[in-house]
Amino acid sequence: MSTQDSSSERIALLQGTLDLLILRTLIFGKQHGQGIARTIQQTSDDALLVDHGSLYPALQRLEAKRWIQAEWGVSENNRKARFYELTALGREHLVRETNQWRRLVEAVGLILGPEKSEG
């Protein structure tokens, strides 16, 4: 039902990684939903596709876990928007998850081998 074009060079997010990315995005301060999606897409050079259908439930989920909190504010264009902010609990979780993620990437990298360099 989503209407995004699924061009082949874009990578669909792994389950669970979206949460991590959202938390990571929020480390620079308050952001609204559209901003979060945009930031993830831009920072990954448009390689990652954020399905809006997953974004809002994810935000909802994180809010429920009290890793982020939200309040209504005004955007740079004077639009009313709901801004999300990292909580102390969320920050702790982010650190822990980031370390875990790095270890996972290293381990997977070791198995997959070094032949392809980063580009």
Binding site: Q34, G35, A81, R82
Partner: peptide
């Protein structure tokens, strides 16, 4: 509990901001 009106508003705002962009 968030009322779903609140959530629609958020989506509307998302679409507005995206349109502005």
């Amino acid at each position: 509990r968030r009322r779903d009106e609140d959530f629609s508003e958020e989506i509307q705002s998302h679409i507005q901001i995206e349109a502005d962009r």
